[in-house]
Design a protein around this nucleic acid. Structure first.
Length: 165
DNA sequence: GCCAACGTTGGC
DNA sequence: GCCAACGTTGGC
């Protein structure tokens, strides 16, 4: 029997100064929790939508050449972001409590770096990638949905086989 | 460094 | 509930 796989795809933004694809790769088991998201729309994705096995495009923001730089896989679904409860954390939120955590995170695991980053110029020139949410002017959402077509277009552009297949 | 776009806050 | 002010994001 073949069950219909409903794998979803996401793009996650990070400033490489704060946390880069190399940092993810070098984490224990190449796995890290995606903490510190403090936006409700992104929180809802993390808490409700993102499932283990989903694919992640890792995007470096706020640099000279922002770009998709690698691929990751969700390995743990939404659970409370403990950094919100930690007064010493940069991401501390006094309104978060153990009973009402307010903020959530997932764990992702490094899959691959792209041979070459796909920068915004390249994305804009691609008929599929130009439609990505991240390409919209003023798009600030740090966790955003990606269509299967967009995921495939990234692989095609990079000349890679789908690591989640 | 600039600045447009966005989300949040808080006075009313 | 409105909306101006503010702080932040992030491409350029």
């Amino acid at each position: 029997m073949t069950e219909t796989k409903t794998r979803n795809y996401w793009l996650m933004k990070s400033e490489p100064k704060a946390f880069s694809i190399e940092d993810l790769k070098n984490s224990e088991n190449s796995t890290a929790c995606w903490d510190g998201v403090r936006n409700y729309q992104a929180r809802n994705f993390l808490r409700d939508e993102i499932k283990a096995g989903d694919g992640v495009l890792f995007y470096h923001s706020n640099i000279a050449k922002p770009a998709i730089v690698g691929l990751a896989e969700v390995v743990r679904e939404g659970y409370p972001d403990h950094t919100a409860l930690d007064p010493d954390s940069d991401h501390y939120d006094p309104k978060a409590t153990k009973d009402n955590p307010r903020w959530y995170m997932v764990d992702i695991r490094f899959l691959a770096r792209l041979p070459e980053p796909i920068d915004r110029k390249a994305m804009a020139a691609d008929p599929v990638l130009s439609g990505m949410e991240v390409m919209k002017k003023g798009s600030r959402l740090s966790v955003q949905p990606v269509t299967p077509q967009q995921w495939q277009a990234v692989l095609k552009y990079a000349g890679m086989a789908d690591p989640l297949r």
